[in-house]
Structures are given as structure tokens and as C-alpha cells.
Amino acid sequence: MSSPISPHSRRPEGLSRRAVVAGGVAAVGLAALPPRAQAEDLQPLAELIARITEGAVPKRGKITLDIPQLVENGNSVDVKITVESPMTEADHVRWIHLIADKNPFPDMARFHLGPRCGRAEVATTLRLAASQKVTAVAALSTGGYVVADGDVVVTLSACIDGG
């Protein structure tokens, strides 16, 4: 026997409006998850960094990643990366690479620099698919690498369409 339906509410008795809305929100949330959001599909951050640095282990320090810890909208996250460097012909930053490992495409950007830049500083706006760690890796002309990262909590995700 099926549940009786109240003539005024057009929903089964015992099922509240709140339960119907919560169920609908949960279904939409699950459907919106990108296939890459599954844990087995994500490439570990250490592997991404090793690929970028060709196996070299980057050192901490001399690089600053300025990114907010909490963002309301993942579609627009401002970030600034600064590397301490004299930016001379003999000692400069070659490039800065940004990684967001929970995004559908974790390699966010690579900025190529040289001694003529004057200072090793870049600023941009990112799209983040979820709360995650954002990592900046810089290659130095002396052959080393430096790394900095920051955890970002995203309340409204971006990139849910896979692109």
C-alpha cells in the first residue's frame, strides 16, 4: 500500500518540506561533482612537484605565496607570488609554476621570468574547484627550486564542469 497523499500538500504524509528540499540539494550536489574529484583519479601533490622539478626536491624559503585562507567564490581567487632574488644575469628566477591538485587540470599556470623583470613577483586570479592546497614552485637560475603552499577553503566551488 502506498503512502496516503494529503490533498493540500501533494506529498506523502510524514515527509516534511525540509526533507524534500534537503534531498533535492543533496542530489544536485552529488551530480555536480566532476569525475576527477574521485580520490583514485587525483595525482598526489608530491608526484606533480617531482614532474615539474624533474625529480629535484624544492626547498622552503625565499618564496612567498599570498593567497586567502577562506574564499567565498572559487571562480575568483586572487594570488600573489614573490621570490627573493636579485634578478641579475647570474642569479634570477627562471619560472614560477602554480599547482592546484584538486582542480580538473592541476597545472594552473607557469610564468617565465628573467633578469630583465626587475623583481620576481607575479599576481593573478585563479579558479579553484574545491577547498585545497595551492602550491607555488619557482626554478632558480642557480639550478635549485623553492616551494611555498597555502590551504584555501572554498565555500562555492568553480570548475565543476570539468574545464
Score class of each variant (00 low, 15 high):
Met1His: 14
Met1Gln: 03
Ser2Lys: 15
Ser2Phe: 12
Ser3Lys: 12
Pro4Phe: 05
Ile5Leu: 13
Ile5Arg: 13
Ile5Trp: 10
Ile5Pro: 08
Ser6Gln: 12
Ser6Ile: 03
Ser9Trp: 14
Arg11Cys: 01
Glu13Gly: 05
Ser16Gly: 11
Ser16Val: 04
Arg17Phe: 05
Arg17Cys: 04
Ala19Trp: 11
Ala19Tyr: 07
Ala19Pro: 02
Val21Ala: 11
Val21Leu: 13
Val21Gln: 04
Ala22Met: 10
Gly24Pro: 01
Gly24Gln: 09
Gly24Glu: 04
Ala27His: 11
Ala27Trp: 13
Val28Pro: 05
Val28Thr: 04
Ala31Asp: 08
Pro35Asp: 12
Ala37Val: 01
Ala39Glu: 14
Leu42Ser: 03
Leu42His: 02
Gln43Leu: 07
Ile49Gln: 00
Arg51Pro: 06
Glu54Arg: 12
Gly55Asn: 12
Ala56Gln: 15
Pro58Tyr: 03
Ile67Ser: 00
Val71Gly: 02
Val71Ser: 01
Asn75Met: 08
Ser76Met: 11
Ile81Arg: 01
Val83Leu: 02
Val83Gln: 01
Val83Phe: 01
Ser85Gln: 05
Thr88Met: 10
Thr88His: 04
Glu89Leu: 06
Asp91Tyr: 05
Asp91His: 08
Asp91Gln: 13
Arg94Gln: 09
Trp95Arg: 11
Ile96Pro: 02
Leu98Ala: 07
Ile99Ser: 00
Ala100Pro: 01
Asp101Val: 07
Pro104Thr: 03
Phe105Thr: 10
Asp107His: 14
Arg110Pro: 03
Arg110Ser: 10
Arg110Trp: 09
Arg119Asn: 07
Val122Lys: 03
Ala123Asp: 11
Thr124Asp: 15
Thr124Arg: 14
Leu126Tyr: 08
Ala129Cys: 14
Ala130Lys: 09
Ala130Asp: 15
Val134Ile: 09
Val137Trp: 00
Ala138Gly: 02
Ala139Arg: 10
Leu140Trp: 04
Gly143Asn: 07
Tyr145Asn: 04
Ala148Trp: 00
Asp149Ser: 14
Asp149Pro: 01
Gly150His: 10
Thr155Val: 10
Thr155His: 12
Ser157His: 08
Ala158His: 08
